[in-house]
Design a protein around this nucleic acid. Structure first.
Lengths: 121, 121
DNA sequence: TAACTAAGAAATTCTTAGCCC
DNA sequence: GGGCTAAGAATTTCTTAGTTA
């Protein structure tokens, strides 16, 4: 449920309900309802939450992790069509993407790793 | 706005408001309000719409096209971290993905192309 | 201090029915 | 037929204030 994910995301950032509530422009009571799944924020507020936590609304609403979100994109015929039409073979491109995404399995947005240092090449 | 995208998606599928309304479990009047942005469907209904049209809720809510959705993923530090840690160099992987995604620019979900024929290799 | 919740007020949405094109 | 909308009913949400841990 949405509330469970909000609670986790907020806890990771070590914020109180009141602090988060003020950031997204609602009272603390209102936000509390969201976390215990008693109320649904309107779309504007949902988008503010997604932006603040840097996750997709798909993740907030459906609980899809990074892997399944990315996989949805790979399954999109549009992507496959474009890949076929390019210089890179479809099979090669998809294989390489798939191998990268595979490493994401089980990881969810918010559980951040240190950002990799830039490479030169 | 959500309603504009719903209208386009429905038109592409050549369905009437009534047909679509029955598919997602609301009356035709209720659905009509969504398309002219007079009402906001609840989350359950929003998800049904996203599933039916095979688009993300991010697309319905924020109007992000395929390209920007995919780009968000590329910008995710998690992905960059994983790529760096793998056999494929980060730069190579991201470059290849980026070139594929570039072809998607300006195209949005729903504007489907014929699915590419499978290749053998 | 922080999280949760009852209750009345307020706002939004739903349905029906009808109108317009 | 197909899309749009008024209006009252129904439902949901908001805020305040107070309780609980």
């Amino acid at each position: 449920m949405l509330g469970d994910r909000l609670k986790i995301l907020r806890s990771e950032r070590k914020l109180t309900q009141e602090e988060l509530a003020s950031k997204i422009g609602v009272t603390r009571g209102t936000y509390a309802h969201y976390e215990i799944n008693k109320r649904q924020p309107d779309y504007d507020t949902l988008i503010k939450l997604a932006d603040f936590f840097e996750v997709s609304t798909d993740y907030l609403l459906k609980g899809e992790d990074f892997y399944s979100q990315a996989k949805n994109i790979l399954d999109n015929p549009d992507l496959q069509y474009a890949a076929r039409d390019g210089e890179i073979s479809e099979a090669e491109a998809l294989d390489r993407i798939a191998r990268i995404l595979e490493k994401q399995k089980g990881r969810v947005p918010g559980q951040r790793q240190p950002r990799p240092k830039p490479r030169r090449n």
